[in-house]
Amino acid sequence: MTDPQSNLKHVLFLCTHNSARSVLAESIMNRVGAGRFKAYSAGSMPSGRINPHAIHLLQHLNYPTDHLRSKAWDEFSKAGNPDAPDLDFVFTVCDNAAGEVCPIWPGQPMSAHWGIPDPSAVQGTEAEVALAFAEAYRQLNSRITLFCALPMASIDRLSLQRRLDEIGKSFAPDEPAA
């Protein structure tokens, strides 16, 4: 009998503080890619807490949030955790994390930068902050949906890498979404 879990692709989303964008991406991937992908999130310098605006948005959209926590990327590196899952994909969702020297990831994953503006940095009214989080969610949801639609079984590694990079440029902050 084939274990359905053995076909899961493991995806790690990275951001410096692991408090907003990477957590949103983890939640979205676990919903959109359910049965095909298992997502995680981590940070190079985790804040130790999930941004309350991210929790509020996810709860409003009926995502489970009880399991979410801000954690260090060491939990997913071979050096930090010998039991870490073999990763298939690693995506950075903030520019700071993209520029940092990452640990060695188990599984030799493919990686890409999918930068999203930091909604936590928005100063303004509650409505303006909520709009920034909603926009980050929209961009991540669009990219993750595109990613999940890729024909993983029939695409070669080089073509897949090109597609991952293209997805990271779609809905970029300086381009209007289609």
Rank of each mutant, 00 (worst) to 15 (best):
Ala98Lys: 14
Gly107Glu: 04
Arg143Thr: 06
Ser70Gln: 03
Leu131Lys: 14
Val122Asn: 05
Ile116His: 05
Ser120Ile: 02
Phe91Val: 01
Asp83Thr: 10
Arg36Ser: 13
Gly107Ser: 07
Tyr40Pro: 00
Asp118Asn: 10
Arg21Lys: 14
Ala134Trp: 04
Ala39Ser: 13
Pro103Gly: 09
Gly115Glu: 11
Glu26Gln: 13
Ile144Tyr: 08
Val122Lys: 13
Ile50Gly: 02
Arg69Leu: 08
Ser142Gly: 12
His53Phe: 13
Phe37Asn: 11
Ser70Asp: 00
Arg143Val: 06
Ile144Trp: 07
Pro103Arg: 02
Pro109Thr: 03
Asp83Val: 03
Phe91His: 05
Leu57Trp: 04
Asp88Ile: 01
Glu100Pro: 08
Trp105Ser: 12
Ser47His: 12
Gly115Cys: 11
Leu140Gly: 13
Ser142Lys: 10
Asp118Ile: 01
Lys38Asp: 06
Ala136Thr: 14
Met29His: 05
Leu61Arg: 12
Gly124Glu: 10
Glu135Gly: 09
Pro119Asn: 00
Ser22Trp: 01
Ala84Thr: 04
Ala25Thr: 03
Trp114Arg: 04
Ile104Met: 11
Cys102Arg: 12
Met110Gly: 10
Ser77His: 04
Trp73Gly: 06
Ile28Lys: 03
Gln139Cys: 15
Cys94Pro: 05
Ala132Tyr: 07
Gly80Ser: 04
Met29Glu: 05
Pro103Ile: 02
Ala132Met: 06
Asp74Cys: 08
Ala34Asp: 12
Gly43Pro: 10
Ala84Gln: 00
Asn96Glu: 15
Glu26Phe: 03
Ile144Phe: 09
Arg138Met: 09
Leu58Pro: 06
Ile55Asp: 01
Tyr40Lys: 09
Pro82Met: 06
Asp86Glu: 14
Gly99Thr: 06
Thr92Cys: 10
Ala130Thr: 15
Ser27Phe: 00
Glu128Tyr: 06
Asp86Asn: 14
Val129Trp: 03
Gly43Asn: 07
Ala25Gln: 02
Ile104Pro: 00
Glu135Arg: 14
Ser111Trp: 11
Ala72Asp: 15
His60Met: 11
Cys102Gly: 12
Val93Glu: 06
Pro64Phe: 01
Asn51Gln: 10
His60Glu: 14
Pro64Ile: 00
Val93Tyr: 01
Phe76Asn: 07
Val129Pro: 12
Ala98Phe: 10
Ala127Thr: 13
Asn30Ile: 04
Leu58Asp: 02
Val101Cys: 09
Val32Leu: 11
Glu128Gly: 09
Ser111Thr: 15
Thr125Arg: 09
Gly43Asp: 08
Trp105Lys: 02
Ser142Leu: 14
Tyr63His: 12
Ala42Pro: 10
